[in-house]
């Protein structure tokens, strides 16, 4: 464990902005994709029944 405190972890040795943007954007894209597929399936299935 190399992080003394939570602020140190967030700072990422001064590169926090870059690191957290990368990981944040990736997480956002993947979550968004899952939601989009989920909604697409729901929409397709509901129209299928009607």
């Amino acid at each position: 464990m190399q992080w003394g405190s939570l602020t140190e972890f967030w700072a990422m040795g001064g590169y926090g902005l870059y690191v957290w943007t990368s990981f944040g954007a990736s997480a956002l894209c993947m979550v968004w994709e899952v939601l989009a597929v989920w909604r697409r399936h729901a929409a397709a299935a509901s129209r299928d029944v009607s």
């Binding site: 464990m1 990422m12 040795g13 590169y15 990368s22 990981f23």
Partner: peptide, 23 residues
């Protein structure tokens, strides 16, 4: 984030590769 050491050349910016290279 917790096991891999800080890179002595690039500092912690290198941790981006953990998402960049797999992507």
């Amino acid at each position: 984030f917790f096991v891999a050491p800080t890179d002595f050349q690039q500092g912690d910016a290198y941790r981006i590769i953990f998402v960049h290279v797999p992507a």
